[in-house]
Structure formats: C-alpha cells, structure tokens
Design a protein around this nucleic acid. Structure first.
Ligand SMILES: [Mn+2]
Ligand SMILES: [Mn+2]
Ligand SMILES: [Zn+2]
Ligand SMILES: [Zn+2]
Lengths: 160, 160
DNA sequence: CTTGAAATTGAAATTCAGTTTCATCTGAGG
DNA sequence: CCTCAGATGAAACTGAATTTCAATTTCAAG
C-alpha cells in the first residue's frame, strides 16, 4: 500500500506536479478499497474523511493515477465504469448480471488463440477485452437466489 | 434485404405499432448500409433522403429494430456505439485503433474454453464480449501507413 | 521563515450521447 | 372519410464526464 503511494508521489514530482492533501487522500482511499470501485463509491469514501473534496478532483486524480500506471479503468457494459489496481498481471472478467459480482480469470490458452486470430487477419493486438456476462452460483434460478445489486438496475448484456 | 423489411413490418403489426414513412426509410437505409454503422452516420444517410427526419426517430427506430431482433447494438470502447445486423451467427471483433477498421471472427475453441472458465467459477454465461484492439495490416509502422479514421480521435484501449 | 509563480482546487458551466415530454400530426381500421 | 392510438420532432432533460475560472495552495528560491 505504501509502495504505491510512494510511486504516485514520485510520479507527481517527476512531472512537476504537486502533492496535495486531496491527492493523498484519494489515492490512499483507492488503494485501501477492494477491487473494481466506481467513481461515485470512491467519492463517497473520500467524502467521509473530508467532505469538502470535489468530485472533479476525484476524476482528475484517477486520471493521474492511470497515467502513473497505478490504476486501470474498466468499462463493464454501458455506463458501468470501474477502476482497479494497475500494475497487476493481466486478467479478464466474469460478471454476474444479477448481483454485480465480478470474478477475475486468466487463461493462457485463450490468450494464445487470440494471437492466432490476430495473426490470421494481419492484426497486431495492443489490448483486448474479454468479458463473460451471466449468473453467478448464488444468482442461478435453482439455488437460494442472491439479492440484486443496488446499482445494477440495467446490467450489460453485450453481444448475444 | 426485402425479407428483413417484411419481418420488421410484421413485427410492428403484431405489436399494434404503425408502419410509417420514417421507419421504412430508416430500416431500409440501415439494411443497405455496411456493417457496424453509428447512429450519426445512419442519421446522415437518412437525412440525405429526407432532411426533416429527427434524430430521435432514428434512435427510436433502432430500438424497435433491436426488439425485433433485426439489429444488435455494440459498444466498442467508450462512446463508440455501433449497430449491426442481428439474426446472424455469433461472432467477435478485431478493431484497428488507428483507422477504425473492424474485422469479425469466430473461434469455437475460444468459445468452448470460455464455457470451461465459467463452469470453473460456477457461472452460467448469458452473453460475452471479446474484442481485440490493435493495428490492422495497413496501419502497422512498417507498412505504407493507413490514414486515421475521421471519427476516431480517441479510440478505445481497454484492458492492458 | 517569506514570497510568488505555477499548479491545484471546487463550483458552476459545458459537453455529449441518449431519453423524455408534449403539442401536433398521421396511419389504418371501421 | 372519421377517429384515435400511436408516431413524430422540437425542445427540454439526464447523467457521466470535462472544461472554465477565480480563489487557494504548494514548494522552491531567496
Ligand atoms: Mn479486475
Ligand atoms: Mn460484427
Ligand atoms: Zn450474482
Ligand atoms: Zn487500421
């Protein structure tokens, strides 16, 4: 947790940017949060500690953290933008469309096949997005049914 | 082309909706367009034939076409919403981040492995999104360089 | 310390894609 | 033809994100 913090400060210094109370608080709060947090959630957590911080500053700080490589932005289906720690190993996601649960996975065979597909069409892959949308164990009809996630009135059902 | 048109009219009738000059034009124009068209492009094409048609009507008609299963909405990276013909075989996409070229692919081995991943975590997949972002042959550094796509100032570079 | 230029902040305004509202118009069944 | 539910389009609205700008803060130099 501290390392990332130091990394961020170093990044700011290198670019002639300043270390501020707000940036410290936002970064610290983000690093302490669990994976896959939304701007609004982060903003609320930050506000509890300092109610005068503006949402704009959260957006701006997230952008800086992304430039620093410490954070990655994910777009899980329309309008569900979440942030997670960067500098981690690559992985893709399983997303429950009912309760919002997100499970990470990585599969080297799939990654390899992707490269083959790209080669076949003469592409060089720079990044990719592989998301599996469906029902997690607790949200499947047969089982004791999980509760729908608060903020997931309309969850993505991207490609058919 | 005509079959889809008939299908749409039938769909409208079944639901007590009306066949209108606007819906006919929008549907016809869409069916004639190439794959992966944006609302704005479609709107412009439609306008050339009837300048008094509103953008709202294009949005509304696309929604109807989606309900009819004739069109699918795709979200290629933030804010790049495109529409393509529905009722086709499932496929995924390769997207050139430089010129915007889109190539479709399907790989049954990948699809199978996806299912395995889902099973491993107890998920039932309802849909998925698999997009490979990178450079197409003509946009690769070595080759005679393609021109950047007009509307692609900022193209998606989703997961790292 | 003190100072001041440059960077940062947050409120408010702005943008952008998409949706809703509503008065007016029109398709299609009788 | 009539009628009226459904459709249209202009304008207003929404929500996420960005820009603007005056006031504030950082930090390096003195
Ligand atoms: Mn993740
Ligand atoms: Mn396609
Ligand atoms: Zn679930
Ligand atoms: Zn290209």
């Amino acid at each position: 947790m501290s390392e990332k913090f130091i990394h961020f400060r170093k990044f700011l210094a290198e670019r002639g940017y300043k270390t501020t109370r707000q940036r410290d608080l936002i970064a610290r709060t983000l690093f302490q949060s669990g994976r896959h947090i939304s701007v609004e959630e982060l903003y609320q957590h930050v506000r509890k500690q300092d109610p005068r911080i503006g949402l704009v500053t959260v957006y701006r700080t997230l952008k800086l953290l992304m430039e620093a490589g410490l954070v990655e932005e994910r777009h899980f289906g329309e309008g569900h933008t979440l942030y997670e720690e960067g500098l981690r190993e690559h992985h893709d996601h399983l997303i429950c469309t009912h309760c919002g649960k997100i499970v990470e996975f990585e599969n080297h065979i799939i990654e390899g096949l992707q490269e083959e597909v790209a080669k076949k069409y003469g592409f060089i892959i720079l990044s990719h997005k592989h998301e599996l949308y469906g029902l997690c164990e607790t949200c499947q009809p047969s089982t004791p049914q999980g509760r729908p996630h608060e903020n997931l009135t309309t969850l993505p059902v991207s490609s058919a």
